[in-house]
């Protein structure tokens, strides 16, 4: 296996997250009617990071955050070798008439987001739904889904894997 290639280093990732926060603020003013929803498992960390960053910029905002697990809504159940083990869903608010931002780290085929739209509707009918992703793997969609906010766009082949790492060594890398 060749050495992982860097897409965004720690500093670049930090700048991108700040830009995404400001783009969200353009459309959601004080976030009073907005819910950020991280998709389990990996979108949750990005969502938490965005909420933290918004809190630093505007401590008076009270940004609502939830996590949504879409395992039971997937369209590839029983097509995989093993069933996926679900993660937890934590949504303590009704989404009725809310402005929802679905958040995931990497947008690839779009099937996860399709399932998330289904799963989300079980918690109410939002007035609008937007999609925010850190990495958009362009030209690899299986369904007609496009993001509203994009951190970084990449063109990579199917065999390559884009991984977002969190924690002390935050970065985005490409593995062959």
């Amino acid at each position: 296996m060749s050495k992982p290639k860097s897409i965004l280093n720690r500093e670049q990732l930090n700048i991108t997250i700040h830009r995404l926060c400001h783009q969200l603020m353009e459309n959601h003013s004080d976030f009073s009617n907005t819910v950020l929803i991280g998709l389990q498992p990996r979108g949750v960390m990005l969502a938490a990071r965005l909420q933290q960053c918004l809190d630093e910029i505007h401590p008076e905002f009270n940004v609502e955050l939830g996590s949504l697990d879409i395992t039971f809504y997937r369209d590839d159940f029983r097509r995989r070798k093993n069933p996926l083990v679900p993660s937890s869903t934590q949504l303590n608010v009704s989404l009725e008439d809310k402005k929802v931002v679905l958040i995931d780290d990497v947008l690839y085929t779009g099937r996860t987001v399709r399932a998330a739209l289904d799963a989300m509707l079980d918690f109410g009918r939002p007035s609008s739904v937007e999609l925010l992703v850190l990495i958009d793997r362009r030209l690899s969609r299986h369904v007609p889904i496009q993001p509203d906010y994009v951190g970084h766009t990449v063109d990579v082949v199917a065999e390559e894997r884009v991984t977002v790492e969190w924690g002390d060594n935050e970065r985005v890398i490409l593995k062959a």
């Binding site: 395992t71 039971f72 809504y73 083990v85 679900p86 869903t89 079980d122 918690f123 109410g124």
Partner: peptide, 23 residues
């Protein structure tokens, strides 16, 4: 343990307003 772990998630599902998943 796997059954218990999966049941935790379904327990959350059956306490929602819409208690149904399409699996």
């Amino acid at each position: 343990e796997l059954i218990f772990q999966t049941a935790d998630n379904f327990k959350e599902v059956i306490n929602r307003p819409i208690k149904k998943v399409p699996s």
